[in-house]
Design a protein around this nucleic acid. Structure first.
Lengths: 144, 144
DNA sequence: GCATAATTGGTGCAATTGCAACAATTTCAC
DNA sequence: GTGAAATTGTTGCAATTGCACCAATTATGC
């Protein structure tokens, strides 16, 4: 039997959801207006861009991206179809698939960032003080 | 030209997203384990349950639920197919569609709540102090 | 009053997702 | 070593979503 939840808690959860969703929608809308692909693509490209050698195993990439494993296969299919990533063989594990970013992939990520940054600034950062940001980080860190 | 975003801000945004998504996934998983429908259904049923007369116009319901308008039509289709809501004619506006909750709908919502509450308590409330909750509410309120 | 615009809600079709099951390895117990 | 179990990544199919567009009705300008 759970303790009955205080109203505050429910409200915090609802606000957390609404804030995240509506921010995300706004950012996605700005990307689309600039004829750029969705945030999800950005996330993949960023992880690969940062990764040593510009490539990662499927299983290394997966946990950084809140999505289901079967969706990663297909997301990679789409990125590969656009020439943004390339599948490569994994030397040490014949099951494994390396996903490598291409120059086009890196270039696209660089073009996406200014739009993303501007949106994040407009809809998020500009409404919060530095202290708010810091507090938010501390509180959210407790949820991991 | 945007001011360059401090790292803190990006981290806060990433954490906001991860916290929300992973919480949501866990709650959904618990609902599914209990053989209950998704949170989205709960949201609709709750709004209707609370509403005066147990019914709302499509357009009243819509803004309370972060989803696209065409999706609401189809969500209502699914709920109606399960007998949880009923479509009724709107007297004053022949375009309008009233969506009314049924007794089955109210009963389902009541069965869902304990699972939802327990999950919210386990994954969210139990990890935060009352002060954290209050702060979180204040900060997120700034984003609306 | 009447044509035009805006609102309200829905639909066909293509793309994406979720689920369950799968093949191909690799790891582990013994 | 060898067979059972676990890991890694993929796929077929059904359900859901996004996009563009539509039909019906109501509001508005003149």
């Amino acid at each position: 039997m759970p303790k009955r939840l205080p109203y505050d808690v429910i409200e915090a959860w609802v606000q957390l959801t609404r804030a995240q969703q509506s921010l995300r929608q706004k950012i996605e809308a700005d990307l689309k207006r600039a004829e750029l692909p969705p945030l999800e693509w950005y996330d993949v490209l960023l992880e690969l861009d940062r990764a040593d050698g510009g490539h990662l195993r499927h299983r290394e990439l997966f946990p950084r991206l809140l999505l289901a494993k079967y969706n990663l296969s297909r997301l990679v299919d789409r990125l590969a179809a656009q020439g943004l990533v390339r599948r490569e063989h994994c030397e040490d594990d014949a099951r494994g698939a390396l996903i490598a970013i291409t120059d086009e992939g890196r270039a696209l990520r660089r073009r996406m960032w200014p739009v993303y940054e501007t949106a994040l600034n407009r809809y998020f950062a500009s409404r919060l003080s530095q202290a708010d940001i810091k507090n938010l980080n501390c509180i959210l860190a407790l949820l991991r």
